[in-house]
Write a protein that binds this DNA or RNA. Structure first.
Lengths: 232, 232
DNA sequence: GCAAAAGTGTTGGCGTTACACCCATGA
DNA sequence: TCATGGGTGTAACGCCAACACTTTTGC
């Protein structure tokens, strides 16, 4: 039996966590209180445990910071350039997570010196984390146009105007109210809860929830959530 | 300065290599002549060198087997379940490559006991390589519908009927000749070389080549290479 | 009643589908 | 001249962008 070469590569996990505050997409980042790069802004991350699958590691790290499980997570990619971490050769698997910003755990956030930062105002991050964030934003823009992932950033009950503001934030462009509404309703993914948005000073918008069954069944088929003009 | 934990994780690279023989999509696999799993079918792979970036590792391994550089490669994902490799904890970064099947190096192929196998006839592979291939096929189906990657599987000069056979092979469905032709021409990606396919016994089809400039400029915008009926 | 936001209707244009038809070639 | 496959034309349909109009609510 051939023995494998000795390994001196460290395997890390970094998490991109997006939320939506009603106006813009926010990124959850931490201020490092450990070396290297203590005091600088960084993505939340950690090393992979010896007896842990990759997805489990991501789940652990996400739970550690947000107190949430069962959130939307997917692999974004791997960053492994030889000089990306000055301390040791470290390959990092990047995960992409979407959460309802209202659900996070304040206590855990304080513990990690974490903050929600609007994408436009985000500071420079350590190592190659800036690149990771740029890739994640592109991925969000790409995927949200074709698959129903926007809902992951909203509360269980939401209005169509809320959803529209979310998409306008993602693509940084105005969207026609009327067409957006009909397009979303025609997907059949929305269920009218019969309730109305209480926090409105004018006409109260209808509260919808996701049709979970249809959502899961058709997640991988193609939708078209954005005007065609955006797609080219 | 905090020191990183000792690492005993091995980092490997595996490559999914697709080609098109004019009739069906083929996968390039090797018969292992080393342990573990000697004699079984496997994806081409290897360990990441200590002083090598991930993409460089993939390029090296692809060159080693095909003799080709500058081929289409992208990261597909990472497989890292704790029990995926019985010898040691090994995390594998999977790369997705498309090549013109006619260009491969016969000598290197023999050296690695490599074979092109039609997707439907492929044998079971070692470890979790079967899952990787399934993910790669899905990725090919997904991406080829929206982005012009089909060309990577064809020679520099190709005919529209050739291209159609390629898409029919990818999606395993018949496509209307006339509509496909007009759809492709309307992209503006094809340049008429003025030449005709010499190897035809009936009317000779026009040979086109890619408009490289338009291809690169618009690669990331959305196309629609498949009938809408396929998209749902 | 008025302003502001939510919701519904209508129309024209454009792209796609599903065909029929014509052209080039070798046997 | 016939069979085969490549290439072009076209009409009906459906979807989508653009915009007018109605409804609800709080002040």
């Amino acid at each position: 039996m051939t023995s494998y070469p000795v390994s001196d590569i460290h395997l890390a996990i970094d998490c991109i966590i997006f939320g939506f505050d009603g106006k813009e997409i926010n990124l959850l980042i931490i201020k490092r209180n450990f070396e290297p790069e203590r005091g600088k802004w960084s993505l939340m991350g950690g090393f992979l445990d010896a007896a842990e699958n990759l997805e489990d590691g991501a789940t652990r790290i996400l739970y550690d910071l947000t107190g949430l499980k069962n959130i939307y997570v997917e692999q974004l990619g791997v960053y492994g350039n030889i000089d990306r971490d000055p301390v040791a050769r470290t390959v990092s698997v990047v995960f992409f997570a979407l959460i309802n910003i209202a659900d996070h755990d304040e206590e855990a956030m304080r513990l990690h010196h974490a903050s929600w930062i609007g994408l436009d105002k985000r500071p420079s991050l350590i190592f190659d984390h800036n690149q990771m964030v740029i890739q994640a934003i592109e991925h969000l823009r790409y995927k949200a146009a074709l698959h129903p992932i926007g809902f992951e950033l909203l509360p269980e009950r939401f209005t169509i105007p809320q959803l529209q503001k979310l998409y306008e934030a993602i693509y940084n462009m105005p969207i026609d109210r009327r067409n957006f509404s009909r397009k979303l309703l025609s997907t059949g993914l929305l269920i009218d809860t019969g309730l109305k948005d209480a926090y409105s000073t004018t006409r109260k918008a209808t509260l919808y929830k996701l049709d979970i069954r249809k959502y899961k069944e058709n997640f991988h088929s193609f939708w078209n959530f954005m005007p065609d003009s955006m797609m080219n």
